[in-house]
Amino acid sequence: MIEVERLSKVYEMGEQKVSALAGVDFTIKKGEFVAIMGPSGSGKSTLMNLLGCLDLPSSGTYRLENLNIQDLKPNQLAEVRNRRIGFVFQSFNLLPRASALENTELPLLYGRVPNAKEIALQALDRVGLAHRAKHKPTELSGGERQRVAIARALVNSPAIILADEPTGNLDSTTGREIMKLFHELNQEAVTLILVTHEQEVAQQAKRIIQMRDGKIVTDELNGVESC
């Protein structure tokens, strides 16, 4: 599903070259639940941007469902993000003036999917928020907002869902609920990649990748469950 080989990213800051990602290799199979951990500056956000097709690598290859991502053009990348990737952000990133339903609908509209409204409503129902469809993000609690964001990530049935510190802005109870939802989704064979620096959150994943200085330090299966 995901094959990453010698993937690296170098940022040029004036004269200086900063190597944010120094050649990482790994593969992720369909239905996996992977947590990427590491201190800030370890390259996990850079890796996340590359996996999310928001950025292109400086060198190396990234294959997502047999597509060579590094060879794609901006519009093709937009299509890959639209069809194959679902994002869940720490700060939810919902459109403040649009209702929960309209937020959830958005990827379908850009993907020109017919019956967008129905599909979006189903996705909201999946995260248990069908009754809040008409509400604006400001009228929802933090947990509810993140659920809307998850519904939006799910709505296009993507190959992977990338979650960047999804519980970072939530209290621990709500955070646990969100993690429970991720678990359920994973049980339904959704591939999940989670970036976090919280040990407790990472422990819920089936596989943990530890990063430091742009490199993978450890990559091991977590606990008794294995894939």
Binding site: G52, A78, E79, R81, R83, F87, N93, L94, L95, Y110
Partner: peptide
């Protein structure tokens, strides 16, 4: 700017 970022992450093309 942020709204534009969100839209692009969700697959909005330049033209859109």
């Amino acid at each position: 700017t942020r709204e534009i970022g969100i839209r692009k992450a969700l697959g909005a093309k330049k033209k859109e």
